[in-house]
Nucleic acid binder design. Structure first.
Length: 854
RNA sequence: GCCGAAGUGGCGGAAUGGCAGACGCGACGGUCUCAAACACCGUUGAGUGCAAGCUCGUGUGGGUUCGAAUCCCACCUUCGGUACCA
């Protein structure tokens, strides 16, 4: 370490700050001193589990990773300074599509590709100076981790939370199942081979997320951002309504009185049902279709299967559909209505069939218009002609609206009428109240190699047989032959495929699907607590002590999938008696996303990835960390631009200068080293100390609220204040010294290296042994130092600023009002007129003089 | 389409019912230097005025209020998610 250069020579220069030398040296020293090891069994301090979403090992740590991680690290350091025992682990979400794509393309294996990427990212992570508990790292592609996915899956199976069902996937004849992003163009072709994508029905595994639908709607005790809670609530989409059984009318081509069950949220509009629509996939379509309609119906079904769900749900495109040549009978009045199939009805929601009430539903209205079907009003406000033509679907719920055209239910309110209609039909079993959810069970089967194998064996005699716990893990084979195709190589891996049935010992076949990677991220934070544990997935005592996670940080793009699956999985583990609590994350913060310079998501394929390494080389990790925090609000993100990093770099250099060269003067500034005209030395000392403590008060609040951008701005102001006093008699005095000390402590969580270096030099200068600034306590605000004797009050006339007055800090409202009305410029504006009103706002913070026709 | 979010100087942003533009970038002017770079100091929303100042100004249009970037209604644009990217 160099000695601090405290020179009395006015034009002295200290050596320039060189982050490339300082930062790695401190990183090594911290690691050596094991400064950030967390003792999970330490109960002497309050525990704080700080979690940030673990990265996918794409191979390069880009600036987006820094944006997620380095402010979170600042939180970790800030909390440690408050005496908390902070656990801040990291790991890698190592299964997934990109590794597989690389292997297919280059003829390799996903495993080494992934592990090399992880190795590189670990090195890059270390340059951040982050305080990770590396000895708790989890890599999900390690059998030591995914073994427990298998084990947990088997527990869920035992508890009825996992089941098997046939469902369609996007299928390419050459490359097998495709992800949504692998289907391109309006004609929906395969990204790799260009073949047209079709749907294929496969038996697949599901997890019963809907079992917890109501519990997932309950956010009690969770401090989560409201937009996320709203998105999850809407995603679950609870709707109350009724199931109503229509029957089919007699016809020559099918059996009469087949039951057609519909779900509706508006049973009150049952008399307004003028047609029925089935999803094209509805199981009765084939049986009900009239022979002369069959060709057209089959063609429509084929066409619907090629559309995406988003496309199908779009309400602004023209409605399509075909009549199937059959009729349904309305149970409430025996009316016969035609049956259609249309792709705006989805098979996965409700019963896959709707009664269409065009007068009171937008989509039904559009369909009726398109196909010239009758529209009958059944709800109206009093005074509306019940039979006037309906120009627009009328949906709004007015308090006084009543049923019309509804037989004996006419005149009832919509709510009451709906209840009575359901009750009346319920007597004959033709209706019952029903709650449905938009939420679907979680399809976890993937027709891919690079994931957790299902611990399932199919035996010709015993059927579906779980792999016994003692045979876990079912390992992925270490050699793999993709044959240049995207389809799952496990399907033709003879050694993997053939297995003895654990029950009968006969020849059997392994499940070749693997698990969705969202499974890994649904419980990885539990595993961080005991990553090496080999007799169970979690250490119950540690889980009880450390979870729910106190603070989770990560992107809002995970609002409904990862963040919902994690809540489900935690509840499912609780249901199996493995843990005690049902919520994973007590407090959540969603930071924004850093986009490429082009405003698009950063990705290797777009070529817009920003590598932080060269910025770190040039400006240092502290400058990069600070710049990312300073750019804007953390929850906002935005397109990447390095413009402005010079500003924070300059800020750090100024701190370096004031800290090491208090008495130096700037030759470029003629006023340097001189107090402002009229400022006494005593006043300057007070002003400096007041600035320091006000900054401390505000910066503390900013850290608490994760308002890092304003936190940095306030520290810049304080360093500017110090710079202004540099070289004056105030510099180097006790107030100066206190201010500098506070500045370093406040900056330490955000810029850990430079503050440690300067802290260390102060200790050397004072002849004390080294102790890390990162083991210091957060300083306390001296409230007395922050008070002022006078303050400025803006005076407005009709809301426009016209003057400012200075009053004593403790002046009462009457005094302030009097002073405001006596201010020369206000007197001139009033020009003898008497104000209509004078508003003293915010306890005397502002005066507004109201002058009508002024 | 549906769900969620965001629109403020040349740029990133601050202010979430009370002084619009903190802090920083860029630009311009200056100091230092033999010079350049670095560094430092100052100016910088638009219009108008010799000036004090005045007028306008927070995506668009309307509304509430003594007072609106902030609250309400309608719309426009951009971003995230939309169940096999993670």
């Amino acid at each position: 370490m160099t000695e601090p250069a405290h020179s009395a020579e006015p034009r002295s220069r200290v050596e320039r700050y060189d982050p490339t030398a300082v930062e790695p040296a401190w990183q090594a020293r911290w690691a050596e001193a094991r400064l950030y090891d967390t003792d999970l069994s330490d109960t002497s301090k309050p525990r704080h589990y700080l979690l940030t979403m673990y990265p996918y090992p794409s191979g390069d740590l880009h600036i987006g990773h820094w944006y997620i991680v380095t402010p979170t690290d600042a939180i970790a350091r800030f909390r440690r300074m408050h005496g908390l025992n902070v656990f801040f682990p990291i790991g890698f979400d190592a299964f997934g599509l990109p590794a597989e794509n690389a292997a297919i393309k280059n003829g390799g294996h996903p495993f080494p590709w992934t592990m090399q990427n992880i190795e590189k990212m670990r090195r890059q992570f270390r340059t951040m100076g982050a305080t990770f508990s590396w000895d708790h790292e989890v890599v999900t592609a390690d059998p030591a981790f995914y073994r427990w996915n298998q084990w947990l899956f088997l527990r869920f199976l035992e508890h009825g939370l996992a089941y098997r069902k046939k469902s369609p996937v996007d299928w390419c004849p050459n490359d097998g199942t495709l992800a949504r992003e692998q289907v391109e163009g309006v004609d929906r072709h395969c990204w790799r081979c260009g073949a047209l994508v079709e749907k294929r029905d496969l038996e697949q595994w599901y997890l019963r997320t809907t079992a917890f639908a109501d519990e997932l709607l309950d956010f009690t005790g969770l401090d989560w951002p409201e937009p996320i809670r709203t998105q999850q609530t809407n995603w679950i989409g609870r709707s109350e309504g009724a199931e109503i059984d229509f029957t089919t009318a007699p016809s020559g081509h099918h059996q009469e009185h087949e039951t057609l069950r519909v779900f509706t949220t508006r049973p009150d509009t049952l008399f307004g049902a003028t047609f029925m629509v089935l999803a094209p996939e509805h199981p009765l379509v084939a049986a009900l279709t009239a022979p002369e309609r069959r060709a057209e119906v089959d063609a429509y079904i084929e066409q619907a299967r090629r559309r995406t769900e988003i496309d199908r749900m779009s309400t602004d495109r023209d409605k399509t559909g075909v009549a199937i040549g059959a009729e349904a009978v309305n149970p409430v009045n025996g009316e016969h209505i035609p049956i259609f199939i249309a792709d705006y009805v989805l098979s996965g929601y409700g019963t896959g069939a709707i009664m269409a009430v065009p007068a009171h539903d937008d989509r039904d209205f559009a369909y009726a218009r398109q196909f010239g079907l009758p529209i009958r009003r059944v709800v109206a406000t009093p005074g509306t002609d019940a039979d006037s033509p309906v120009e627009d679907a009328y949906i709004a719920h007015a308090a006084d609206e009543q049923l019309v055209n509804s037989g004996r239910f006419d005149g009832l309110s919509a709510d009451e009428g709906g209840r009575r209609i359901v009750a009346a039909l319920a007597e004959s079993g033709a209706a019952q109240p029903k709650v449905t959810y938009r939420l679907r069970d979680w399809l976890i089967s993937r027709q891919r190699y690079w994931g957790t194998p299902f611990p399932i064996i199919y035996c010709p005699t015993d059927g579906i047989v779980p792999v016994p716990d003692e045979d876990l893990p079912v390992r992925l084979p270490e050699t793999v032959d993709y044959k240049g195709s995207g389809s799952n190589p496990l399907d033709h891996d003879e050694a993997f495929l053939h297995v003895e049935c654990p029950r009968c010992g006969g020849p059997a076949r392994r499940e070749t699907d693997t698990m969705d990677t969202f499974i890994d991220s649904s419980w990885y934070w539990f595993r961080y607590l005991s990553p090496a544990k080999d007799d169970g997935p979690v250490d119950r005592a540690l889980v009880d002590a450390w979870t729910p996670v106190d603070q989770y940080t990560g992107g809002a793009e995970h609002a409904v999938m990862h963040l919902m699956y994690s809540r489900f999985w935690t509840k499912a583990m609780r249901e199996c008696g493995l843990i005690g609590e049902g919520e994973p994350f007590r407090r959540l913060f969603n930071q924004g996303q850093i986009l490429g310079a082009d405003g698009e998501r950063m990705s290797k394929s777009r070529g817009n990835v920003q590598d932080p390494d060269e910025l770190v080389q040039r400006y240092g990790a502290d400058a990069v960390r600070l710049f990312l925090m300073f750019m804007g609000p953390w929850d906002q993100g935005g397109p990447w631009s390095p413009t402005g990093i010079g500003g924070v770099s300059r800020f750090l250099n100024r701190i370096w200068t004031v800290a090491l060269d208090a008495h130096g003067r700037e030759p470029g500034d003629p006023a340097s080293g001189v107090l402002a005209a009229g400022e006494t030395e005593a006043a300057a000392r007070d002003a400096l100390r007041a600035a320091a403590h006000r900054t401390l008060r505000d910066v503390t609040a900013d850290y608490e609220a994760f308002h890092f951008n304003t936190m940095v701005a306030k520290l810049m102001e304080l360093s500017n204040t110090l710079f202004r006093y540099r070289g004056t008699p105030v510099a180097g005095g006790p107030e100066w010294d206190e201010t500098l000390r506070l500045l370093l402590l406040m900056l330490a969580p955000a810029a850990p290296h430079i503050t440690e270096e300067l802290w260390s030099r102060r200790q050397v200068a004072a002849g004390r042994p080294w102790t890390s600034i990162h083991l210091e306590s957060w300083p306390a605000v001296d409230e007395a130092a922050t008070t002022e004797s006078t303050r400025e009050v803006p005076v407005q006339i009709n809301g426009k600023l016209r003057d400012r007055i200075v009053v004593a800090a403790d002046a009462d409202q009457d005094t302030i009002q009097g002073a405001a009305l006596a201010a020369p410029r206000i007197v001139a504006w009033l020009d003898g007129r008497v104000p209509d009103k004078v508003i003293v706002a915010g306890g005397g913070r502002l005066i507004n003089v109201v002058l009508r026709d002024g």
